[in-house]
């Protein structure tokens, strides 16, 4: 019996992909992240929701160290986040990030956007990088746009290219910071569908979004943040139908009734 339980713990330990422990961060006097403890398992899809200004973006950005933290630890696949330099660059390549505003490289074609990191960071040769880029662009449904510049694409297409660009690095985990918030309503679904497929394929994902449909159908867990704290975590159904905290009830009543 003891043997079995030890084995179980071992499995659990190696299955933890992203672990944040007592993470704190300030912007000047503002305490944006307060004692954040969060563990994301391999293959898990976690949706982060919460009022504007609650620290969701900052949380995402600390995970690939676009923002530094003041105290606490963050580990990815058992390794603590490196400081600056080569190590950090490698870590960032392992953590894909998709931004609200797409941020495709404006002076490069769609294809070049998806090839650049493979060539310059992963040192893949050009031909292989192009093959992979084209395959990924097909997978997100923008294969025919490969030679255009980002500004020639619709928002939904740009965001799908941005997802392909992140996937091209072969990341262990993907972070999405409100990936559909800057999109016209008719383009939201094409992006969510790509994300849903990604979740089904077993990608580990942290998704900041207010798309309840996505949370219900794709997430394993919902994390609710308010004022820099994680207030509540639960399975999506449980969270949406039966939130425990007043903050969550209040928030849900606001976003569901408009």
């Amino acid at each position: 019996m003891t043997n079995v339980s030890v084995a179980k713990e071992d499995v659990a330990a190696t299955d933890e992909l992203v672990v944040l422990k007592s993470v704190n961060k300030h912007f000047g006097a503002l305490h944006v992240l307060q004692d954040i403890d969060l563990t994301i398992g391999r293959g898990e899809v976690v949706v982060v929701i919460g009022p504007s200004g609650s620290g969701k973006s900052t949380l995402c950005r600390t995970i690939n160290r676009l923002e530094t933290i003041d105290s606490g630890t963050i580990t990815i696949d058992g390794k603590p986040l490196p400081q600056e330099g080569k190590e950090l660059a490698r870590l960032r390549a392992d953590v894909g990030m998709v931004f609200q505003s797409f941020n495709l490289f404006a002076h490069k074609t769609v294809l070049e956007n998806v090839m650049l990191g493979q060539i310059k960071v992963r040192r893949t040769d050009k031909k292989q990088a192009e093959e992979k880029a084209r395959a990924l662009l097909d997978r997100v449904g923008v294969g025919t746009q490969a030679d255009k510049y980002p500004a020639q694409l619709s928002g939904g297409q740009q965001q799908r290219v941005a997802i392909a660009r992140a996937l091209a690095m072969g990341p262990k985990v993907m972070l999405f910071d409100e990936p559909t918030s800057a999109l016209d309503p008719e383009m939201i679904n094409e992006v969510l569908e790509v994300m849903q497929q990604l979740a089904r394929d077993g990608m580990t994902m942290v998704v900041v979004t207010h798309e309840m449909g996505f949370a219900r159908s794709a997430a394993n867990r919902v994390v609710f943040m308010a004022d820099g704290r994680i207030v509540e975590q639960a399975a999506p159904d449980q969270f949406f139908s039966n939130p425990r905290s007043d903050r969550a009830k209040d928030f849900l009543s606001k976003i569901l009734h408009h």
Partner: peptide
């Protein structure tokens, strides 16, 4: 930021 995020 996007450049740093892919590891450049």
């Amino acid at each position: 930021e996007a450049a740093r995020a892919i590891g450049l």
